[in-house]
Amino acid sequence: MDRRRVNGPPGGTAPPCYASTLSGKTHPSPKRTRGANEIRKIFLKTGLTPSASGSAYFELETPPTNYSNSLTNRTSALKLTCTVHGPRPLPRSAPFSPQLLLSTRVKFAPFAARQRRSYIPDSGERDLAAHLETALRGVLIGERWPKSGVDIIVTVLEGEEDRPWDALAAGNQNGRTGGWGMMSILSGCITVASAAITDAGIDCVDVVIGGVAAIVRQPAAPPQLVLDPCPSDHEEVIAACVVGYLQSRDEVTETWAKGNVTASSDGKGTTPMGFNALVDQAVEAAVAARRVLVEAIRESTEAKIQSSQAKLPDKLTSV
Rank of each mutant, 00 (worst) to 15 (best):
Y18W: 06
S76G: 05
N69M: 13
Q99V: 06
S123Q: 15
T75H: 12
G35A: 14
R92K: 15
T62I: 03
G54N: 01
Y119G: 14
G35F: 11
P110Q: 12
K31E: 14
R34Q: 09
Y57I: 01
N73P: 04
A109Y: 03
G24T: 07
F111M: 15
K45H: 08
K41C: 02
F96W: 14
R40Q: 03
P95F: 09
H27S: 10
E59Y: 00
T26C: 10
A52D: 13
L136D: 04
C82M: 03
S51D: 09
R32E: 15
I42A: 02
Y18I: 09
E133P: 01
H27K: 01
Q115E: 15
L80T: 04
N66Y: 07
P30Y: 03
K31N: 11
L101E: 06
S55Q: 01
S103C: 01
V139H: 00
L44E: 01
R74W: 12
F111C: 08
Q99I: 02
T104R: 02
C17M: 10
Q115W: 07
A135Y: 02
L100K: 05
F58H: 00
R40V: 07
L44S: 04
T26Y: 03
T21L: 09
T49W: 08
R105G: 02
A113M: 15
S97N: 12
A94S: 15
F43H: 07
R34L: 14
D122V: 09
R137S: 13
L44Q: 05
L101D: 04
S51Y: 09
F58P: 00
R116D: 06
P50C: 05
A77P: 03
A135M: 01
L22H: 02
L48Q: 05
G138T: 06
R126D: 08
A56H: 07
K25Y: 03
P64A: 05
T26G: 14
N66K: 10
T21V: 10
S76Q: 10
P98A: 14
G24D: 09
L22F: 10
F43L: 04
K41D: 09
T65N: 15
L22S: 01
A52K: 06
E38F: 01
P15V: 14
L132W: 04
I39M: 00
E61Q: 06
T62M: 05
E61L: 00
A94I: 06
A56F: 08
L60F: 03
R114G: 14
R34E: 05
E133R: 00
G54A: 07
K31Y: 13
P89E: 10
P63T: 07
A94E: 13
N73T: 11
A112N: 01
H131L: 05
T104K: 02
F96I: 11
K45W: 02
N69S: 15
T72I: 13
